[in-house]
Write a protein that binds this DNA or RNA. Structure first.
Length: 417
DNA sequence: TACGTAATAT
DNA sequence: AATATTACGT
């Protein structure tokens, strides 16, 4: 996504005009900062009615609306309805409440004919973002002067911004954005929200956590065994595993796993000492036939960064069983399955391919949804859509940045990318 | 700096 | 429950 024009100036929607609506001032402020940091033109509203007034006042004044779902006067839903009926702007809904998201999706899909795309990106563990548009086509029409492409991710946006600024500097123009904001995108979201200017940063996406599948664990054990006793340190284990084509692990991953692995061995040997079962630890040797083939989603070039349901059955621990994973489909749509014990269901190997975007699993969609899950939940129907890579590229992509304001800032913030 | 370990966070 | 991260001593 390197749109550079003839003058060498990077093109990107620097002036995308965004109206943000939230009754919570803090949210507004955080959001505003983040968006500004990305060179968006931000207008904030604390009341939906004000937002409407602005929108009605000049239908071309804004390009996108980002709104909270829960608001005292007019709630987000109503706002969407009005906007969609009067001006057809893309509206992004923010909500942190899982239940509300489910309800909202149901309502919107039921009541209107809007295109609702739940976008969940791993960077945001708490937020669902709903990109709501009347229809897909109108989205394609969303090409306003100066807006070549609104589908860029944060990284791209930053690099484009950098390019743009460099070019501007080369042309003797003072960049509009503070250079500092482009650097140190390394730092964590530990940004305490004080009013110091130094505190706003562009948060980078969180890496998905490693899933130690049976196969991965076997590779790990092999590496440990290959290295002798005393040599089985994280770094060397990592090297061995990389030689086995496991490319995505970090040393910390290995170290963490090693720690748990050793604890387990200890427990195991303590137990077997009591039982005089000297061979107990042998069970960790992998069978001669097993291969190093790792599940595709664990490969870096497989691009899939999905995580795994956190409610996989109780009994099976990767350390103390050598059950062969009977891969069952992770996109179980049969709701009756959810309540049942499913210790034999292993989901790890069944995630549909995605496109470099870390996406949560279905379990998370339903977690905390309580009885609402029983509704015909469009999420289960939309799963294909969620996992369908193309849609992530074609619409406004969103990356949520979870604030660590804890409960206070429950709605968190999002950055338009 | 890498490591091990325990504690704690997510 | 599993994995990540941190703190701290070696």
């Amino acid at each position: 996504m390197s749109a550079v024009d003839d003058n060498g100036v990077a093109e990107f929607p620097a002036d995308l005009k965004i109206l943000i609506v939230d009754d919570d001032k803090t949210c507004l402020l955080v959001l505003e900062r983040m968006l500004r940091k990305l060179s968006y033109k931000v207008t904030k509203c604390q009341h939906a009615r004000d937002a409407l007034a602005l929108l009605r006042g000049d239908k071309n004044r804004f390009d996108v609306v980002i709104s909270d779902l829960h608001m005292p006067d007019i709630d987000g839903l109503k706002l969407i309805e009005i906007i969609a009926s009067e001006m057809d702007l893309p509206v992004v809904m923010m909500s942190s409440d899982e239940r509300q998201r489910v309800i909202m999706n149901g309502v919107i899909q039921g009541a209107c004919d809007y295109l609702v795309k739940p976008v969940r990106i791993e960077a945001v563990s708490l937020i669902w973002q709903h990109v709501v548009r009347k229809n897909r086509r109108s989205f394609e029409d969303f090409q306003r002067p100066g807006i070549r492409n609104i589908n860029i991710n944060v990284t791209d946006r930053l690099s484009l911004l950098q390019l743009s600024n460099n070019a501007a500097v080369a042309n003797g123009i003072v960049p509009t954005t503070d250079k500092r904001s482009l650097q140190s995108s390394k730092r964590r979201s530990e940004d305490t929200f004080n009013d110091g200017e130094s505190s706003d940063e562009v948060t980078t996406a969180k890496k998905p956590r490693v899933v130690w599948t049976q196969e991965l664990h076997e590779a790990f054990v092999d590496a440990v065994n290959q290295l002798g006793h005393g040599n089985d340190v994280p770094k060397k284990i990592l090297e061995r595993m990389q030689a086995m084509n496991v490319t995505y692990l970090t040393r910390a991953n290995v170290a963490s796993h090693l720690q748990k692995y050793r604890m387990h061995l200890q427990k195991e040997s303590a137990r077997s000492a009591g039982n005089r079962d000297v061979n107990a630890c042998q069970r960790f040797q992998r069978t001669p036939t097993s291969s190093y083939q790792l599940p595709q989603q664990n490969l870096v070039n497989g691009h899939v960064l999905s995580t795994v349901p956190n409610h996989v059955g109780t009994g099976s621990n990767i350390f103390d069983s050598n059950i062969v994973s009977e891969s069952s489909h992770c996109l179980q749509t049969d709701a009756s399955l959810y309540g049942l014990s499913q210790s034999n269901l292993l989901y790890q190997n069944d995630f549909p391919p995605s496109d470099g975007v870390a996406i949560s699993n279905e379990e998370n969609l339903h977690s905390n949804a309580g009885s609402v899950t029983e509704l015909s939940n469009p999420f289960s129907v939309t799963d294909e859509m969620i996992y369908e890579p193309s849609f992530l590229q074609e619409e406004v992509a969103l990356v949520g940045l979870q604030s660590n304001m804890g409960g206070y800032l429950s709605c968190s913030s999002i950055a338009l990318v």
